[in-house]
Amino acid sequence: MHQWTLKAQSDHFLSRIDTRVRLFCAVFAIVLAISQSGMIFPAVLFIVSSAAIFAIGIRVRQYFLRLAEPLIIGLTVIVIKSLAGNEALATWQVGTWQFTIFQDGMLAGCALALRIAASVSVLLLLAFSCSFTDLLTALSWYRVPRGLVEILLFAHRSLAALHEEASTMYHAQRNRLGYTSARHGFRSFGILAGTLILRAFDQSQATALAMMQRGYNGHLPVADCRRLCACDFCSAIFFLAGMGALWMMTSGI
């Protein structure tokens, strides 16, 4: 089972900047990273965001465990891209088959892998540095449809309880040899998912009833945002200008 909730230190240097600013800057940085074909900008972005993640108190092991899957995908991309191109770098003859690695393909693959690492590290920095509720408040402020914010809230509220329940059932099934073979595994997993769905139906009725008793009329109230201060504007301008300038320099504009 995954440990999916990781928290940064409660008082870190990013906590003074409003979540709306952090969200905007993260989206801006990701857009810049994916709109460039070079390697320098994503590499700098990856280093800066990784350093910021360590600075807010996330351990190296936790960070790289979270980053492992995107990095494996990046490696796969490098392998696939290296097999096509114009400038042959090395050729191996294995029996009747000939393997050729192309330099331009490999460079394109490396640029893509760096883009993946940069984008994921920026997203992880955002996820580690702010609470989910703050993120939803920010989304609401950016006029993301209310219905979407509400179901995100419901999903997030029930995650811990459902995860606990699913975890207990899963371990109970494992202890009773529920996953010894593929056939048993499929059956056990079907029962687990079905039971969770049943609980979801029952819990949704109970939640709706409890909320109606407290005046719920189909719309969840979302917390109001505080007024943005000068520090928020300055941080945003400093970050956007810095990233924009770096992007233009590395793009050759």
Partner: peptide, 15 residues
């Protein structure tokens, strides 16, 4: 009125 909680819970289960 239980529809939104249900959709949220199903999303949590998918996760």
């Amino acid at each position: 009125l239980s529809m939104k909680p249900l959709v949220g819970l199903v999303a949590a289960i998918v996760f």
